[in-house]
């Protein structure tokens, strides 16, 4: 028996996420975006959220001013209109990270590490406000893990042990975030009868706390 709980609705799955929480949100653009879980959070009008995701297209949350801070790599483009508006009004702040640094900060948190060193961004304004260290004559930025209370991910198929398989390029940040928070909630398109083949599982149910089947 794994500890994965299978819940009846997205609303049940996010019912305890409090105001002011930091949440990891999977997806790259619309691919793999956990829109049902985010929609359920928006229905509860949870506020003061810090949302960590590759993009900033959390329109359902911006509509009522639910977000205090966005941590992302790409806050512009057609789906970011809502964010740019709240940013302009000074109602939310932005922490911008190169995509690879962003995902590694998430991964190292899940891996129980204290951070990592990278040369990406050295000599550019992306290195501003970051501690630097020299090792063997090379300059590195010190990158700290991103600590969140919840991870919301989207997968394709799950089994009753909470094992997940992502579909195509919807794997993206989902497979990383699924191991990176104390409470991981997955919305999936299908929960199969019985169990998935252990050789083809992308995320073990050992990482998944809550599972909900949704309609897309």
């Amino acid at each position: 028996m794994t500890k994965t709980q299978i819940l009846a609705s997205a609303a049940d799955a996010v019912a305890d996420i409090p105001n002011g929480a930091t949440i990891l949100c999977g997806g790259f653009g619309g691919a793999g975006y956990p829109r049902n879980l985010i929609g359920a959070l928006a229905s509860r009008k949870v506020t003061g959220l810090t949302v960590v995701a590759n993009n900033a297209g959390h329109e359902a949350l911006f509509r009522y001013g639910g977000v205090r801070k966005v941590v992302c790599s790409y806050p512009v483009g057609p789906t970011s209109k809502g964010f740019l508006e709240v940013l302009e009004r000074g109602e939310a702040e932005l922490e911008l990270e190169p995509q690879g640094t962003l995902v590694e900060r998430i991964r190292t948190q899940g891996a129980g590490l204290g951070g990592f060193l990278t040369q990406v961004g050295i000599g550019t304004e992306l290195a501003e406000n970051k501690q630097k260290i020299e090792i063997d004559g090379k300059q590195y930025l010190i990158c700290k893990p991103i600590e969140a209370q919840y991870a919301l991910v989207k997968a394709w198929k799950a089994d009753h042990a909470g094992n997940l398989v992502y579909r195509h390029a919807a794997r993206n940040f989902n497979a990383v975030m699924a191991s990176a928070a104390p409470i991981v909630i997955a919305e999936v398109s299908e929960i199969v009868d019985g169990y998935l083949d252990p050789d083809y599982i992308h995320t073990s149910g050992a990482f998944i706390d809550r599972l909900v089947m949704v309609n897309n």
Partner: peptide, 23 residues
């Protein structure tokens, strides 16, 4: 919708290709 490129345009995958996570 699950096969998009980095510009978020629809894409395809060739034979011999693979999907990987972002990390």
């Amino acid at each position: 919708p699950d096969v998009i490129d980095a510009g978020k345009g629809f894409a395809t995958v060739v034979a011999g290709g693979a999907f990987i996570d972002s990390a």
